[in-house]
Computed example of a mutant assay.
Amino acid sequence: MKVLFIGGTGNISTASSCLAVEKGIELWHINRGNSGNPIRGVNTLQCDVNNRQQLEDVLSEHHWDCVVNWIAFSPDDIKRDIALFSGKTKQYVFISSASCYQTPPESPVINEATPLSNPMWQYSRDKIACEQLLMDAYNQNHFPATIVRPSHTYSKVIPIAIGGWTEYTAIDRIKKGKPVVVHGDGTSLWVLTHADDFAIGFVGLLGKVESLGEAYNITSDEVLTWNQIYQRIGLALGIEPKLVHVTSDKICRYDSEYIGSLLGDKSSSVIFDNSKIKKLVPDFLCTTLFAEGIKTTLDWFEADPAHRIIVEETNTMMDKLIAAELA
């Protein structure tokens, strides 16, 4: 099977690239060639995906069993891909987002039939618009679209709301015995998925004709409260974290940039129903509990000082929010 990943070396996609090669897939990446760690066994088409003429030139002689776009975020990206790959691929996979689901949800249990609506986050609304374009192209012109909705998937990122992701700020505070801000009261439910587990479900659906015109959740079945998430981080560090709970509304009033990622995503409880992907890919099983997965993530940050990015603006924000909360 000949597969093209647009992107392929990111937080989620690296594990999927490695597994695809391991499974014997003829995998190609198209990117600008800036990745410092090319994946062994992957063929590369070097191109700026935002340069339409370059794209057309490098793709002109290729046909694909599957094309996956990991970095499509706008309807214009999808319109371009429909034009580029119509008649040139048997399957086109769009990486959407579980943040597209109804926010706030009527029920914490989310399946693929849950309505798509997120008034809080433009990122999610753009992803919804992308999905709608693809489903129209499938229904009207048989464009072979498959939609994947991952949720909070981690590997070499710290999956917390404030002072994490590519930042090391919150971890640094915990190690120094300083308090950290946790949104809400810490009891809402959340799902974290390790990229290695996601890859099993994802690679398993490549080439599956049954998936055309369908959408799939691919997440872990482990459900944790945010307090438990921070406690497991503390256990991995060998330090009991000092948690200060601040409402998401207060955090967003301090910095409106958090409105999307908090009010539009992480402030609501979610439990994902993965029965649909499990039916299509019986081998899909998430075996990496967060308590173990976060250890490998923290090991990666510890392995190189360059990974440990401390953002002083985040420190200042936490200090001010905590001082106001404890006053």
Rank of each mutant, 00 (worst) to 15 (best):
E112Y: 09
A199D: 12
N118S: 03
F143R: 01
S155C: 12
R253P: 10
V244W: 08
K278T: 13
Y138P: 07
G7I: 14
Q140K: 11
K90W: 02
I233V: 10
L321P: 08
T9N: 12
P104F: 06
I25K: 04
I95L: 11
V244I: 14
P282H: 00
D265C: 12
V311R: 07
S17Q: 01
F272G: 01
I71E: 06
N43A: 07
S13G: 07
W165L: 08
H63D: 10
G264K: 13
D304F: 06
N43C: 06
W190P: 09
L133P: 02
V209S: 00
C66I: 00
L4H: 02
P150M: 04
G87T: 12
I251A: 03
L285R: 09
R40P: 14
P75V: 14
P115A: 05
V42Y: 03
E292F: 08
R173V: 08
D76G: 04
G24M: 01
V223E: 07
L298Q: 01
G164C: 05
S107I: 08
E312H: 13
H183Q: 13
M318R: 11
E131K: 00
K242W: 14
S211N: 03
H183M: 09
G264W: 14
F202S: 01
A137E: 02
Y101N: 08
C286Y: 14
N51G: 02
T146L: 02
S74N: 09
W70M: 15
G213S: 06
A113W: 06
W70Y: 05
I239W: 05
V209N: 05
V21G: 04
P305I: 13
F272K: 06
S86A: 10
K279G: 15
V58I: 05
K320P: 00
T187K: 10
P150L: 12
S124W: 07
V182T: 05
L280M: 13
N50M: 13
I160K: 08
K208P: 02
P115Q: 09
E325G: 06
S256Y: 14
T89C: 12
L326Y: 06
V191H: 04
L235E: 15
L212A: 00
P108Y: 09
E313Y: 11
N11Y: 03
A98Y: 00
N37H: 12
L289D: 07
P104L: 07
N51C: 10
L133C: 03
S155Y: 14
E131P: 03
H152P: 06
V180P: 07
I277M: 05
A98H: 01
G177D: 01
A15V: 11
L224E: 06
G36K: 13
D249P: 05
Y168P: 11
L4V: 06
A145W: 02
G163T: 14
V93L: 10
I251H: 02
K88Y: 13
C66P: 00
M135G: 05
P108K: 01
T297W: 15
I160M: 10
E214M: 07
V58E: 11
A327P: 03
A236L: 04
T89V: 15
M318D: 12
I158S: 04
H142A: 09
Y216W: 02
S99C: 10
I309V: 12
Q102Y: 00
N118P: 05
N31Y: 11
Y216E: 00
I200V: 15
L224Q: 07
K178R: 12
A137S: 04
D299L: 07
